[in-house]
Simulated assay, not measured.
Amino acid sequence: MIDVYGIRNCDTVKKARDWLDGKGIEYRFHDFKLEGIDAKTAARWMKALGRDTVINRRGTTWRKLSPAQQAMDSDAAAVSLVMAQPSLVKRPVIDTGKTLTVGFGDEQRQALDAL
């Protein structure tokens, strides 16, 4: 089963969910704005994808952080930050059990089509 992590009202998450529904692909949706992100999951994302891929540095949540918070110097610091501010995660995060991707562009659609 595919796990889709995101925020329900995010346009990119909506596109991904609509695409998955249209293809008849079953998935579980985890709204981390409502349900949060656990440390184990966030740490796995940081290790597999890297902080630069997982953290959204273009959003308003990022711009509201203090310079000290923005200077996170370790994966552990990034994990703590996204647990406190889940909106910092680029969306959607899609976990197929074999692959882990962020965003929903051509590359992500091709990977899902290959399932």
Rank of each mutant, 00 (worst) to 15 (best):
H30Y: 10
L34T: 05
L100C: 12
A39C: 06
V82K: 04
D75G: 15
Q108F: 03
D11V: 04
H30V: 07
I25F: 02
L112A: 01
R44L: 11
A114G: 04
A43N: 05
Q110K: 10
R17P: 03
D106F: 02
P86F: 09
Q85T: 12
E35N: 05
T99W: 03
G6K: 13
D31F: 05
R57N: 08
D11E: 11
V79D: 11
M1Q: 14
E35K: 07
V102I: 12
M46T: 14
L65R: 11
A84K: 15
E107P: 00
L81S: 06
S87F: 07
T96A: 02
A114L: 04
Q69M: 01
L20D: 01
G105Y: 02
R28H: 00
Q69Y: 05
G50R: 08
L88W: 02
A78Y: 10
Q110G: 09
T41N: 15
R44I: 12
G97T: 10
V89C: 12
I94T: 09
T41C: 10
A84G: 13
D11H: 01
K33V: 07
T12H: 11
R109Y: 01
A78N: 08
I55P: 13
L88P: 08
H30C: 13
S87V: 02
K64I: 01
R51P: 05
I2T: 07
H30E: 08
N9Y: 09
R51V: 02
A39L: 03
L81M: 14
S87A: 13
E26R: 15
L115C: 09
S66F: 09
I7T: 10
T12E: 15
T61Q: 14
T96M: 01
A68E: 09
S80A: 15
K23A: 02
